[in-house]
Computed example of a mutant assay.
Amino acid sequence: MTAPHDVLEIPRGLTLDRPRPGDGAAMWRLARDSRALDLNSSYSYLLWCRDYAHTSIVARDAAGAPVGFITGYTRPRAPRTLLIWQVAVDHAQRGRGLATAMLDALTRRTGDEFGVRAVETTVTPDNAASDRLFTSFAARHRAPLTREVLFEAAAFPERGHQPEVLYRIGPLTPASAV
């Protein structure tokens, strides 16, 4: 695993945890309020917290309320690959490195528990924040990063959806898997 100085610290006053079903409503609100994420049904966030808690992470404030989350899962046909579904951070917490700290912690945990050695996510061309998050993750962990369109805009039923570009980061070695 990486040296402690290679992992960004959790912002002061926050803790990282596995999500619980009781966090689903707050996670839905964070996704809604982001105005950048595709909002899933509130029910899906409840299920996510139940079924994918081991491959997801939530940031909590001092009162225990969720102020950020990353949802992810290991791919069924590539179980050493963690697919990051959504990353959300409360507006009041932005600019503190929380998304980076959550991604590092989640990758470390899934590397240790499930042998994850690659990360995948999709990013739309207009999402500069996600591009920076995943590009800097790859650079910080000295891991190759490839990009290719996974789903063209025409694949989506709603008009105006941008293409989803697949970012594949890896292989992550045990020394760089955070």
Score class of each variant (00 low, 15 high):
residue 2 T to R: 13
residue 7 V to C: 12
residue 9 E to G: 14
residue 11 P to Q: 06
residue 11 P to A: 09
residue 11 P to F: 06
residue 14 L to K: 14
residue 16 L to Q: 12
residue 18 R to T: 06
residue 19 P to G: 12
residue 19 P to S: 14
residue 20 R to N: 15
residue 20 R to T: 08
residue 26 A to H: 00
residue 28 W to N: 00
residue 28 W to Y: 00
residue 28 W to A: 00
residue 30 L to A: 04
residue 33 D to K: 00
residue 35 R to D: 12
residue 36 A to V: 07
residue 40 N to D: 09
residue 44 S to M: 12
residue 44 S to V: 02
residue 46 L to C: 01
residue 46 L to F: 12
residue 48 W to V: 00
residue 49 C to T: 03
residue 50 R to P: 01
residue 52 Y to V: 10
residue 54 H to C: 14
residue 56 S to H: 04
residue 58 V to W: 01
residue 59 A to R: 11
residue 60 R to V: 00
residue 60 R to P: 01
residue 62 A to T: 05
residue 64 G to N: 03
residue 68 G to N: 02
residue 70 I to C: 05
residue 70 I to Y: 03
residue 70 I to V: 11
residue 71 T to P: 10
residue 73 Y to L: 03
residue 80 R to L: 04
residue 81 T to S: 06
residue 85 W to G: 06
residue 86 Q to Y: 13
residue 87 V to R: 12
residue 91 H to R: 15
residue 92 A to I: 09
residue 94 R to N: 07
residue 99 A to F: 00
residue 99 A to S: 07
residue 101 A to F: 01
residue 106 L to R: 10
residue 107 T to N: 02
residue 112 D to P: 05
residue 118 A to E: 04
residue 120 E to C: 10
residue 124 T to C: 02
residue 125 P to N: 10
residue 126 D to N: 04
residue 130 S to D: 13
residue 130 S to I: 05
residue 130 S to Q: 11
residue 132 R to H: 15
residue 132 R to Q: 14
residue 133 L to W: 07
residue 133 L to N: 08
residue 133 L to Q: 07
residue 134 F to N: 05
residue 136 S to R: 15
residue 140 R to C: 14
residue 141 H to L: 08
residue 145 L to R: 12
residue 146 T to P: 11
residue 146 T to L: 07
residue 147 R to P: 05
residue 150 L to G: 01
residue 153 A to H: 04
residue 154 A to Q: 10
residue 154 A to G: 11
residue 155 A to E: 15
residue 158 E to G: 05
residue 160 G to R: 02
residue 162 Q to M: 02
residue 163 P to F: 01
residue 164 E to Y: 13
residue 167 Y to R: 02
residue 168 R to P: 01
residue 169 I to G: 02
residue 172 L to K: 08
residue 172 L to S: 04
residue 176 S to Q: 12
residue 177 A to E: 07
